[in-house]
Design a protein around this nucleic acid. Sequence first.
DNA 1: CTGAAAGCGCTAACAG
DNA 2: CTGTTAGCGCTTTCAG
Lengths: 353, 353
Amino acid sequence: MKMDDWKFRQVRRVIKIVNIKDIARKAQVSVATVSHVINRTRFVSDELIKRVEQTMIDLDYQPNLLAGSLRTKKTSTIGLIIPDSSNMIFAEVSKNIENILFSRNYNVIVCNSSYDINRELEHLKTLRSKMVDGVLIVPATLEGEHLEKFKNIGIPIVILDRTLPDINIDTVVADNYKGGYDAAKYLENLGHTNIGYIDRIYDLPHSLGRKNGFIRALEEKGILFNKDNIVRGGFTFNDGVEASKKILKKNPGITAIFSFNDISALGAIRGLTELGLRVPKDISVVGYDDIPLSSIYIPSLTTVCYPVSEMAKEASKLLLKRISKPIFKKADRIIIPNELIIRESTSRCKNRA
Amino acid sequence: MKMDDWKFRQVRRVIKIVNIKDIARKAQVSVATVSHVINRTRFVSDELIKRVEQTMIDLDYQPNLLAGSLRTKKTSTIGLIIPDSSNMIFAEVSKNIENILFSRNYNVIVCNSSYDINRELEHLKTLRSKMVDGVLIVPATLEGEHLEKFKNIGIPIVILDRTLPDINIDTVVADNYKGGYDAAKYLENLGHTNIGYIDRIYDLPHSLGRKNGFIRALEEKGILFNKDNIVRGGFTFNDGVEASKKILKKNPGITAIFSFNDISALGAIRGLTELGLRVPKDISVVGYDDIPLSSIYIPSLTTVCYPVSEMAKEASKLLLKRISKPIFKKADRIIIPNELIIRESTSRCKNRA
DNA sequence: CTGAAAGCGCTAACAG
DNA sequence: CTGTTAGCGCTTTCAG
């Protein structure tokens, strides 16, 4: 007992942290009892509860979750790996996830992969070492082996917003095919038949889904989609500016442009404006994502709403489910519908050409 | 030894995690030695190093940082508390911080306070319980007592982007006064003398700094700033729309508007457009922040660049310094300059009124 | 150069 | 209803 006392003072001098032992001593109860009143995991007399809680307040006690986690193998923190947390769409997703998880008493470690699979791997390793209870990830690439390996170690993981081929991991994605389809249908109904398409530099499942849906809708109306109407670019604003100009040069008869994302669509509006065309009077533009900017741009952008909050909700729910019962048989695949938001940037076709 | 063996199998069955003991046994060395080759904290024969490292690979060993942290009292994770991680400016800050800290081998737990001090408090508590090495915070309010208390416990904390009164905590802020001053000087030089001002609903140090600098610059030129030219609103796009209309109604002779943030400034452009005024032909607009949107809006916005990455860099550096040597005497206060970015939304005054 | 052993602060049997 | 005890997996003396 005496030696214990001495150690106690030792520690207090270095770090001003009071531990469960301190409060046990002060409240004159066993350490176990204190633990139990904290976690409400056993019947304790009211008198004791009161005494313990009071000393906890007196000493400003805050449990050391590290120690607890070491025992319970549960950290109440999950990892979120995204390519770029400053990308508006990911920022929105991560904020939603953080909020939901906060209400379930989880914290989230946010990691940027910067579209680099090596960094993704690094992060996965540290997250594992920090014993996170699970991981939400928007993969940097289509590579999924390392993710599968990670899952097989026993740490739940769910993929967000991307479809990786040949993989048995829970996934939550938006219905990109339907989104592209709806966008095309809408433009058709406005009378547009000659439509330009701004695409990613190379196909990824999500953008490909959009394109396939788009083309399918045209085909249904008997409109032959001219592959020449596709221009591929990056995914920035300036890429959109360039792309729109290229498209118009290749095919001046175009009366509408669909872009696989909003930023490029907005860029396209700027590019068209620079060409002297008025949107939507002379030409219509439709985007994809519904980033905040799209509603406040001039003209505001008609776009397919990316269901950020739904996605965050479903993904969090799924992950928590996997965490609570780790028996994993077949991966879930949740597809979230998205909705077309009609705004100023589109109008009935006036057959410009 | 036998009993040990049995326990080993026990654990392996439940969680597929191999620990330092496993690799010690397999490599036929002491646990201590393994630890030392991992952390390169002692001379170990090459032969042993090789053997140990090989078994680490064979068993796919990943250290349990929880256990280590429990001993060393160092978690290599820091907490970042911001009001809203989907706000573009904070998203940018947080991405930068994450990147810098990643390179120094830290992880960051991102927390949203949602401008709610109680949530901020909650987060502070869990971060403390999770034994973060330090905290970066953009406070939700001007209240700072809880932060000071937190600091006094011994956890380094630095305040970002806000100046709290009467507080002895490290702070990194932008030079708001200078920013406001520069903006006003610039408009003066374009010949504007009757300038509207869109302000926050109530003063906060950072917005107040901008305003004071602004007014000071006008005074230097002998321009009397009409308090009636100030309209207060929220900080959203739509608030800016409203504010601009109100200003023009109150004082139709205004030839330029300065807004305390970009979003409202962009809203103002929209509002003015709706009033039939052309920006910048009829009226100039200047914002503050330089959010990504400002450069791509039509017309692009002249604005004071908020030094996000500089701020993230300085704040991280300061925090890491405090973590490595915890002797705290006087709080540092780092002021980061910001620069005026001139774009399309402003032009020489043509004395409209 | 290497090993044994004592904890970090907490939880969870087990034993009253 | 309450206490004792044995670890969680690692680091760090101390003792060769």
